[in-house]
């Protein structure tokens, strides 16, 4: 990429922090971002996980899947929709001229998504232990949070590669569809076992299915194929990273 980037004049850490904060702040000010990413998972968890849930353990297992929805949403939208807009408005070119390296920009954006994920998870976990009466061991809470927050990485990369390619006018719509398909068919809205057989098979080709399996494993409901799920997610992450890198190169070449 460009070699004539200005040399950083401020310590890189402070720049990262400032960029993350700016990114976080601008997202906070955008209702079209906050509403679907915050309100949806919390509202639906309250409905399906707490009000309508029956049988022991539903509040806990739905916490695993709705927590993922809560993290995946900001990651897809935060990268996808805003990058598409920034690319077209020329902000991205501006970004490339700034002293912050490309990875710093991406890191800050990812950190923003993770921060949002933390807000959603904090509220969901609060609902789970309060009205949901979910009890997990400390190691399970930590593993659950880690597995869910880590999902921001592949999903952020997917959002980025979409945002770098899609026109800003259609980015929101397309990413919404991608989000819903990944969440619903990956078994995060409803357990994959109740889907028709064809869809059950299809689910295994979605990264969200494997994320769900990992989050369930974190709370002691794993299916035993931990390494398989980790491997598949690693492959997806690599794939999305390649797509994002190529998209970036394309956007730069223009």
């Amino acid at each position: 990429m460009s070699l004539d980037r200005p040399r950083p004049s401020a310590p890189i850490l402070r720049m990262l922090l400032t960029e993350t904060a700016a990114s976080f702040l601008s997202s906070l000010r955008s209702p079209s971002f906050i509403l679907p990413t915050l309100a949806f998972p919390i509202g639906f968890y309250a409905l399906f996980g707490l009000v309508l849930s029956r049988g022991e353990g539903a509040a806990a297992s739905l916490l695993a899947s709705f927590g993922l929805i809560g993290v995946i949403g900001p990651a897809l939208f935060g990268f996808g929709v805003s990058v598409a807009a920034e690319r077209e408005s020329g902000e991205l070119d501006l970004q490339r001229l700034s002293p912050l390296p490309v990875w710093g920009f991406l890191f800050a954006r990812l950190a923003m998504c993770v921060l949002f994920g933390m807000i959603v998870l904090a509220i969901l976990y609060g609902l789970a232990v309060g009205p949901g009466n979910v009890r997990l061991a400390r190691t399970q809470w930590l593993a659950l949070a880690a597995s869910q927050l880590a999902s921001a990485i592949p999903m952020g990369l997917l959002g980025l590669s979409l945002g770098l390619r899609l026109p800003s006018q259609s980015a929101g719509g397309v990413i919404n569809v991608v989000f819903l398909v990944l969440a619903a068919l990956g078994g995060l809205w409803l357990p994959v076992q109740i889907l028709p057989e064809v869809l059950q098979r299809f689910a295994q080709f979605l990264p969200t299915f494997h994320m769900g399996a990992l989050s369930l494993a974190a709370i002691g409901r794993g299916d035993g194929a931990l390494w398989l799920h980790l491997g598949v997610l690693g492959a997806f992450t690599a794939l999305f990273a390649i797509l994002a890198a190529r998209g970036w190169a394309r956007a730069c070449a223009r």
Partner: peptide, 29 residues
């Protein structure tokens, strides 16, 4: 922006604190 910068650091710390404050179940081990 200053408040927001603070929140970038405070949020993860608070989240981690929450994870440790959540009512513990019988430990896994």
């Amino acid at each position: 922006l200053r408040v927001s910068t603070f929140s970038v650091l405070a949020l993860p710390a608070g989240f981690l604190g929450l994870l440790f404050a959540l009512p513990g179940a019988p430990a896994a081990a």
